[in-house]
């Protein structure tokens, strides 16, 4: 199969002063960070810290009230989610959202149709991506007949099939067994190494965060409270106080 990510180092993300307010609640407040092309960054923080809202603003599902998001120096402001997807941002959903009446191949082929009009080519590409994620023997199954970890993989496969430059992963390791987590980590490392795919992941599984990330961003109450190397961030007293605690490191 051809590489799911696009060749060459692309997919740099600049997030500048984005905020999102829902009524009286400030979900994300003035958050800025950058992810260099080809790097893997993790976005961590307690529940309700604004991580998924940040993803939604990058992917266009919820346009930011203020600020700007740029992919490879081009602003994504005002673009719809499907346009942002075609611009090179693939995303997964925290609560999996498969197309239930479609087979796995068809689910993933929908993603591949973002760059081809040829359904046969899209299906071929989808089969390759499913193989890569270890779902090769379930290609003709439907999402309802596979396990939750497999459905998480399907979510990743559909996003990868769009040939993103930047992949947003929203808690794809949650609920996986450690061996499954390690397998997923290995897949992302390989994708990143082979294709230069830039990855931003929201994750609670610190095992995965530590194994994958070049940098770790920490959100708390909608504010970015830390941005640094994993070993620095995990020693940051403020981060420890609000989120990690000592027991996070097993």
């Amino acid at each position: 199969m051809s590489a799911p990510g696009q060749a060459g180092r692309a997919g740099s993300l600049i997030v500048r002063n984005i905020s999102k307010r829902f009524g009286g609640l400030v979900a994300v407040s003035d958050v800025s960070f950058t992810v260099a092309a080809g790097e893997i960054h993790a976005l961590i923080g307690p529940n309700g810290a604004g991580k998924t809202t940040t993803f939604n603003m990058i992917a266009g599902a919820q346009p930011p009230d203020t600020g700007d998001v740029q992919l490879d120096g081009v602003s994504l402001a005002g673009l719809r989610p499907d346009q942002i997807c075609r611009a090179g941002v693939g995303r997964t959903f925290q609560i999996v959202r498969p197309f239930n009446e479609l087979t796995l191949v068809e689910n993933v082929a929908v993603g591949a149709l973002a760059w081809t009009d040829d359904l046969a080519e899209a299906r071929d590409h989808a089969r390759g991506v499913l193989e890569l994620l270890g779902l090769g023997d379930k290609k003709e199954a439907r999402p309802s007949s596979i396990t939750l970890p497999d459905r998480k993989c399907l979510e990743v496969a559909r996003a990868l099939a769009t040939k993103p430059k930047l992949l947003l992963l929203d808690e794809v390791m949650a609920g996986l067994r450690p061996t499954e987590t390690d397998r997923m980590v290995a897949i992302f490392k390989k994708l990143n190494a082979d294709t230069g795919l830039t990855i931003l992941l929201i994750e609670h599984v610190m095992r995965a965060v530590m194994a994958l990330s070049d940098r770790v961003l920490v959100l708390n109450y909608g504010r970015l409270i830390a941005d640094g190397k994993p070993e620095e961030v995990t020693r940051d007293p403020e981060v420890l106080a609000c989120y990690l605690g000592a027991e996070a490191f097993d």
Binding site: A61, D82, C85, F93, G111, T162
Partner: peptide
């Protein structure tokens, strides 16, 4: 099947 997921997939 899922409008938001479809939109996010392009």
């Amino acid at each position: 099947e899922d409008q938001e997921a479809a939109e996010a997939s392009g």
